[in-house]
Deep mutational scan, measured.
Amino acid sequence: SEIVKHAEEALERGEFVRIEHNGRVIEIRNEEALEELRRWVEK
Rank of each mutant, 00 (worst) to 15 (best):
I28W: 00
W40L: 12
H21Q: 05
E2N: 13
F16H: 14
G14E: 05
N22D: 12
L34K: 01
A33M: 13
E9I: 09
H6G: 08
H6C: 15
H21I: 15
R18H: 11
R38N: 02
F16D: 08
I28E: 00
I3W: 09
E32K: 11
R38A: 05
L37N: 00
E35P: 01
G23L: 02
I19V: 13
H6D: 06
R29D: 10
R29K: 11
L34V: 06
V17E: 06
W40K: 03
E2Y: 09
R38W: 02
V17R: 00
E12I: 12
S1G: 10
H6Y: 15
E9N: 09
G14D: 07
E32C: 12
E9D: 10
E35R: 08
E2Q: 13
N30R: 03
A7H: 01
W40Y: 07
E2M: 13
K5L: 07
N30S: 11
K43H: 13
H6W: 15
V4G: 02
R13M: 07
L34G: 00
R18D: 07
A7W: 05
E32H: 10
V25H: 06
R39H: 11
G23T: 01
K43E: 14
E42T: 09
G23S: 03
A33I: 07
E32I: 09
V4A: 03
R38Y: 03
E12G: 15
H21G: 01
W40F: 08
R39Q: 11
R13E: 06
E32F: 08
K5F: 05
E42A: 09
N30A: 04
V41E: 03
E31P: 11
R13A: 07
F16W: 09
K43Q: 14
I28F: 03
E12N: 15
E35Y: 02
R29Q: 08
E9Y: 02
K43I: 14
S1N: 12
L37E: 01
G23I: 00
L37R: 00
I28T: 00
R39V: 06
I3E: 04
R29H: 11
A33S: 13
E42Q: 08
A33C: 15
I26H: 07
V25M: 08
E35M: 08
E31R: 15
E15K: 04
V17A: 07
E42V: 06
G23W: 01
E32G: 08
K43N: 12
E12F: 11
R13W: 01
G23K: 02
N22T: 04
R13Q: 06
N30H: 06
I28L: 04
E35F: 01
R39E: 09
E15Y: 04
L11R: 03
W40E: 06
W40A: 06
R29E: 07
R13D: 06
E35T: 07
R39A: 10
R38H: 04
E15N: 06
L37M: 02
E9S: 09
E12S: 15
K5I: 06
G23D: 04
E20R: 06
E8C: 13
R38S: 03
H6F: 15
R29V: 13
G14S: 01
E8W: 10
I26L: 09
N22G: 10
E31F: 14
E36N: 09
E36Y: 08
A33D: 15
I28Y: 00
E31D: 09
E15V: 03
G14M: 02
L11M: 07
L34H: 00
R38F: 04
V25E: 05
E35G: 07
E20P: 01
H6N: 10
E36K: 10
V4C: 04
K43S: 14
G14T: 00
G23P: 00
L11C: 09
E9M: 08
F16A: 13
I26C: 10
R38D: 02
E31T: 13
R24W: 11
E27P: 03
E9Q: 12
G14L: 04
E31Q: 14
E15F: 04
E8H: 09
I3R: 05
K5H: 06
E15P: 00
E31I: 14
S1D: 11
R18Y: 11
H21A: 08
G23M: 02
I3K: 12
I19A: 04
S1W: 15
R24C: 15
I19D: 01
I19S: 01
E27R: 02
L34Y: 01
E9P: 01
E9W: 02
R29T: 13
E32D: 11
V25I: 13
A10D: 02
G23Y: 01
E12H: 15
R13P: 02
H21D: 03
L34Q: 00
E8A: 14
R13T: 07
E42R: 04
E35C: 10
I28S: 00
V4N: 01
I28H: 00
E12Q: 14
N22P: 00
V25R: 04
I3L: 14
S1I: 12
I19M: 05
V4I: 14
K5Q: 08
E42F: 04
R38C: 07
K43T: 13
G14A: 01
W40M: 10
V25S: 07
I19H: 02
R18F: 11
A33Y: 04
E31K: 15
G23V: 00
I26K: 01
A10I: 05
I28D: 00
E31N: 12
S1H: 13
I19R: 00
A10P: 02
A7P: 02
K5V: 05
R29C: 14
V17N: 03
A7D: 02
S1K: 13
L37V: 03
E27I: 14
A33R: 05
R24K: 12
E35N: 11
E2V: 11
N22M: 14
E2I: 11
E36Q: 11
H21L: 15
E8R: 15
L37K: 01
H6M: 15
V17G: 04
E32Q: 12
K43Y: 14
V41S: 02
A7I: 09
E12V: 11
V25P: 01
H21N: 05
E31V: 14
L37T: 00
K5G: 04
V4T: 05
V4S: 03
R18C: 15
R18Q: 13
E15H: 07
L34E: 03
E20Y: 10
L37P: 00
L37S: 00
A33E: 14
E27V: 12
A10L: 07
I26W: 10
A10E: 02
I19T: 02
R29M: 11
A10S: 08
E15W: 05
W40I: 10
S1T: 11
L34C: 01
E8T: 13
G14W: 01
K5W: 04
E31S: 12
I26E: 01
H6L: 15
R18A: 12
G14Y: 02
V25W: 12
L34F: 02
E31Y: 15
S1V: 11
I28G: 00
I19Q: 01
E42P: 02
R13F: 04
A10F: 06
H6Q: 14
L11D: 03
R29N: 13
E8D: 03
E20M: 10
E31G: 10
A33L: 09
R18G: 05
R38M: 07
V25C: 15
G23F: 03
H6I: 15
L11T: 03
K5M: 07
I19G: 00
I3S: 05
A7E: 01
E2H: 11
R29I: 14
F16M: 14
V17Q: 06
R18S: 14
I19E: 01
R39T: 06
I26R: 02
R18L: 09
K5E: 04
E36F: 08
H6R: 15
L11Y: 09
N22I: 05
H21M: 15
R13S: 06
R13H: 07
E42S: 09
G23R: 01
N22H: 14
E42H: 04
E31W: 15
E36I: 11
L37W: 02
E27W: 10
V41A: 07
E36G: 06
G14I: 00
E27Q: 06
E27M: 09
L11A: 03
F16G: 09
E36W: 13
H21T: 07
E8K: 15
I3P: 03
A33W: 05
E15M: 04
R38V: 05
A10M: 10
A10V: 05
L37Q: 00
L11N: 02
A7S: 03
A10N: 03
R39I: 09
R24G: 06
E27D: 10
E15R: 04
E9F: 01
E2K: 12
F16C: 15
R24I: 13
W40N: 04
E36H: 09
R24E: 09
V25T: 09
V4H: 02
E9L: 09
A10Y: 07
E2F: 10
G23N: 05
R38G: 02
E27N: 06
F16K: 11
I26G: 00
K43R: 11
V4M: 11
A10C: 14
E42M: 06
I26Y: 09
R13V: 04
E31M: 14
F16P: 12
V17Y: 09
W40P: 01
L37H: 00
E20F: 11
E36A: 12
R13Y: 03
H6E: 10
E20T: 10
E32M: 10
N22Q: 10
E9R: 12
S1Q: 12
E32Y: 08
L11G: 02
